[in-house]
Design a protein around this nucleic acid. Structure first.
Lengths: 246, 246
DNA sequence: ACCTGAACACCGTTCAAGT
DNA sequence: ACCTGAACACCGTTCAAGT
């Protein structure tokens, strides 16, 4: 199996460049599932989930659309593979049950970071169970840690679900903000500009007698950046889990 | 404003049926936003979120596609309106802070039921914040209850988010099962047939030395029906919130 | 074994035109 | 004021055909 990836004829003598097929430009590497996943992740990050199409992925790898279907069953499978790839970016420390709370916290932030690294992966993850090598690795790790910490099997198993659900759906909330800016900037750099303001105006205009709490506490609802809110929920989940310890 | 909906000419004398416009069949009511939302919910329930198209909604109300755009800005707004409508189906008892845990539990199940009443509403809700009359009503109710129960403003506000996120994302997990059956049944009535089995086989085939927990505890992961799992997480959230009481 | 163009059956949205 | 057909610029997927 030769290491050369292009322009290799009979006896190692290089072909002249003009032998390359006429209109194709430089990067004529072999198409592969890996390359397709890379491209898909790039398109996803650049254009969001709604902007991700098989045609754009094909363009990104400089191939025809139909070619993708040799390496991948369909768009759905492509998304699942991309998700497993992102889950693979989560680093898992050796499980140390004595420090189960810290480690769970640590990995939660790791997971959040991975999901926020590319636009709309969290969105893509909702409603899919991307079972694959990396999710399986993740679940095994969770079980080793929590079971080792003295949490009975059933709560441990169910908590894993809850934990993953929380990380994903919270990351999705962050994606909402950066969802509306499609075509490149043209001067102003506010994300989802008027909608944010419109919501504020709507809430501010609510009749105080019908909505006493909302008009009084309105500010608190929007208070805290996304990380603070994530920390709050994470802490709440851990307190709840701790109550299940032997 | 007359109560008659069709065939009414000048002085109450009915028109003969053949006066109706030529090819249009019976139900020629005025198009309205209400009617469009009803139709959208019907299509959503019947065909799932992926099967919901403006064209099918238009067919359902016996109108041209373009007509929808008079009553509704676009598909996105249509979805938001549908969501607010479903949220409106959640019944809220008068908040009684002395029974805050029971009431929260009660409403959680109510919300879950509303989300599961139509296929894929939960799926549609992810990544959207359908702020409208009914969501606002819901938030006000939550705040009255939790604040009345002695939970400080910030935790109370943030918990609302978490609570809603949990209900929606858990309902979404239920939608996954019934996602794959498109065209009406033709004999066999198993939902997502081979994929379920394939997952089981994959997990069972994992090397026991690399995945000790998964191979030992595999059954526990799948154990419990969806309601039991929902109850577990709900309970965990409430325990966590309780730890924030004054 | 791998890639392709062309075709099929769809989409959401706009717009000039009708009543 | 409300509804329409036709058009535009897209989709995912299949399939016979090429190398």
């Amino acid at each position: 199996m030769t290491e050369h990836t292009s322009s290799t004829a009979g006896g190692g003598v290089p072909e002249p460049p003009w032998w390359n097929s006429p209109s194709r430009s430089a990067s004529r590497t072999q198409l592969s599932r890996e390359a397709i996943l890379d491209a898909a992740l790039r398109v996803l990050d650049r254009e969001g989930l709604d902007g991700l199409s098989m045609r754009k992925v094909a363009d990104e790898v400089d191939a025809g659309v139909a070619s993708l279907y040799w390496h991948v069953a369909n768009k759905e499978q492509l998304l699942v593979l991309v998700l497993d790839r992102v889950i693979g970016e989560i680093e898992l420390p050796d499980p140390d049950p004595d420090r189960w709370q810290e480690q769970l916290r640590e990995v939660a932030w790791e997971g959040r970071a991975a999901f926020l690294r590319y636009r709309d992966v969290a969105r893509a993850s909702m409603g899919r169970v991307p079972i694959g090598p990396n999710l399986v690795r993740f679940v095994e790790w969770m079980l080793q840690l929590t079971r080792g910490a003295g949490i009975p099997l059933q709560p441990a198993a169910w908590f894993g679900d809850l934990f993953a659900l929380y990380i994903a759906s919270h990351a999705l909330e962050d994606d909402i903000g950066r969802t509306t800016d499609d075509h490149g900037s043209h001067g102003d750099d506010d994300a989802a500009p008027d909608s944010q303001a419109a919501i504020g105006a709507y809430l501010a205009a609510l009749p105080a007698d019908q909505f006493p709490q909302l008009t009084e506490a309105g500010a608190a609802l929007a208070a805290g950046d996304s990380d603070e809110r994530f920390a709050f929920g994470l802490d709440l989940l851990l307190r709840g889990l701790a109550s299940h310890t032997d």
